[in-house]
Write a protein that binds this DNA or RNA. Structure first.
Length: 557
RNA sequence: GCUCCCUUAGCUCAAUUGGCAGAGCAACUGACUCUUAAUCAGUAGGUUGUUGGUUCGAUUCCAACAGGGAGCACCA
């Protein structure tokens, strides 16, 4: 059977579930006369399912045949009972986490009969919904572990307790199915908090077997490709992504409290500016215009400073056409914010506030584990001058050009024709960055390697810039922003030197320079890599652990 | 783009110098009304990522390809 035919059969089954053939909408009442509906469904599905030819599993392996066929048989049985295997709206259910908190309402009574102690519990009636992750059937009794977004709880299902019909439904349950239950919150003999089920509501059938129940999915490829399984069954996975959400919301809250406006800049740019990275290229058909995906948020936010949005930020996705690593994904989330009349010191204070509030938001202490190590976020973070760190970790006098060159040669760096500041920076990256366990603000960079930064008035060779390093990772980067249009234009040109004229014309952002000519207030600007921040705050070793759907190649065939 | 490592049942993992490819979970059948990685008995499940090569014989050795991982390069 071809894929097309399979599609067709799948479509037929769907149609059957919605409205049986031969029945018009006004002839069938799904709620009042479910028997009629069920009969027709059962008849048609039996025809399809009882055939030796099981089209949807023909080209799969036999093990999958067995698993899926078994689940489809249970699905068929549910249909024959007039139960929709794909469920309906289910109201008034309580979060499992909230239900667990009702434990204190349970009363117990211990009696002694025939020399045997017996404890009888009474508890509140509850209603929950969730996914079946474990099941322990013991004859006419089933224990089920049910999970929702807030937690997990045990269900007790006894044949005598739930009645015949519920017990019939229970025979159709598989691991991974989604159900709702009404019952009494009590305790078992072993003291486990348990919902003793009185009514079972079937909500969704699962056709595929869940991952191994002890270890879950461990293959990193499968975890990324099938993130839904990773989230549903992986230990702590949902929590980690919920924490990501909380961190991002906390950052927005912090900035709003500081009087910032959040904006949404364009992601399609005509010029990839604001950073040095290769962009993704795309094309607008109607305009016949080549476009690039943005590599940074900076230049549009600064235009908004000119426009009078004195405190402005964007927290969004940027795209860089570069290699992939445990710390790099081609699309990642960046925060950039700009504050008029501030400088880089303003942004240092803000950075601390953003991070501390984020830790509070996920209920984390300020000392957080990271792999084998620990990061101490207790403010204030260290602030150290670039040149002091060079002296300390590289053991050279940064002011001495001969020492710098000697050190660079020792590290086998190419020294020919390079500005000493460039060499200083290469030495810094080689010898210092890894040692910055942090959190530590590295401040006052050599001006020549920071073209978009304002210099210190009394020390023009020093740029008012900081980078925040934690565990050797560059987490944040901030400047006192350059707002001199003439100097900016000149620096753009210097940056573009060596490119062909065609290239440099295409990339010179004349509109941005024009904006500066119309007056951008002196300002502090800050960029934070949100993914890396989340990694550090959630003890995640790779960026793929905290990006829901990282970029992957096509699945292997 | 480069280097190294990995790919065995739906999932998690074994397989001795190259000699019949195995287990746990999941599934199926049966027993079991307080289990909690439930237990017990039985059944079924495989083109060892793909394609070639070496060999009497390849999961095992070699090559290419695909996917994944680590590192490098790229990334003010």
């Amino acid at each position: 059977m071809t894929a097309d035919q399979r599609q067709e059969v799948a479509g037929e089954i769907n149609d059957l579930l919605r409205l049986p053939e031969g029945l018009k909408p006004d002839e069938v009442c799904l709620f009042g006369e479910s028997e009629k509906f069920a009969d027709v469904l059962a008849e048609n599905l039996t025809k399809l399912l009882s055939a030796n030819d099981r089209p949807w599993i023909e080209d799969e392996s036999a093990a999958v045949h067995a698993i899926e066929a078994a689940r489809r048989q249970k699905m068929e049985k549910l249909i024959s009972m007039g139960i929709d295997p794909w469920g309906q709206r289910f109201d008034n259910q309580q979060a499992i986490g909230d239900v667990r908190a009702l434990e204190s309402e349970i009363t117990s009574e211990t009696t002694t009969a025939n020399g045997k102690e017996q404890t009888v519990y009474h508890g509140p009636k509850v209603r929950v919904a969730g996914r079946i992750v474990l099941s322990r059937p013991t004859g006419k009794l089933i224990f089920i572990n049910l999970v929702d977004r807030t937690g997990t709880i045990q269900l007790f299902l006894g044949q005598a307790q739930v009645g015949e019909r519920n017990w019939e439904v229970a025979q159709c349950l598989d691991l991974g199915d989604i159900i709702g239950v009404d019952g009494e919150l009590k305790k078992t003999k072993t003291g486990e908090l348990t919902i003793f089920v009185e009514e079972l509501h079937f909500l969704t059938k699962t056709l595929e077997a869940p991952p191994e129940k002890h270890k879950g999915l461990t293959d990193p490829e499968l975890r990324q490709r099938m993130r839904y399984l990773d989230l549903a069954y992986g230990e702590g996975v949902l929590e980690r992504f919920v924490n990501r959400t909380k961190i991002v919301r906390s950052i927005r809250d912090t900035l709003c409290e500081e009087g910032y406006f959040e904006i949404e800049g364009p992601t399609l740019h005509t010029i990839a500016g604001g950073a040095a990275a290769r962009p993704f290229e795309t094309f607008h058909n109607a305009l016949g215009m080549p476009l690039v995906m943005r590599i940074a948020l900076e230049l549009h936010l600064k235009r908004l400073l000119v426009g009078g949005m004195e405190r402005v930020f964007e927290l969004g996705r940027v795209y860089r056409n570069e290699g992939i690593s445990p710390r790099h994904n081609p699309e990642f989330t960046m925060l950039e914010c700009y504050q008029a009349f501030g400088n880089y010191e303003t942004m240092m204070d803000l950075t601390e506030k953003v991070i501390i509030n984020a830790l509070d938001a996920i209920g984390s202490p300020y000392k957080v584990p990271f792999g084998e190590k620990e990061i101490d976020f207790t403010p204030p973070f260290q602030r150290r001058a670039y040149r002091d760190l060079l002296a300390e970790h590289a053991g050279i006098d940064p002011a001495s050009e001969t020492e710098v060159i000697a050190c660079a040669k020792k590290l086998k760096l190419e020294t020919e024709g390079k500005h000493p500041d460039v060499l200083r920076n290469e030495i810094f990256e080689e010898m210092v960055e890894d040692k910055l366990v942090g959190p530590i603000f590295v401040i006052d960079y050599p001006a020549s390697i920071c073209p978009l930064t304002k210099r210190k008035t009394d020390q023009p060779e020093i740029a008012e810039r900081f980078e925040l390093f934690i565990q050797g990772m560059e987490l944040a980067n901030a400047y006192t922003e350059l707002n001199d249009p003439d100097l900016q234009e000149q620096l753009f040109r210097t940056q573009l030197e060596g490119m062909s004229e065609e290239d440099s014309m295409a990339r010179m952002d004349t509109d941005f320079v024009r904006a500066l000519r119309n007056g951008m207030p002196p300002a502090g600007g800050l960029g934070i890599g949100i993914d890396r921040l989340v990694m550090l705050l959630t003890n995640s070793a790779t960026i793929r652990e905290i990006i829901l759907f990282p970029l992957l190649r096509h699945e292997a065939t």
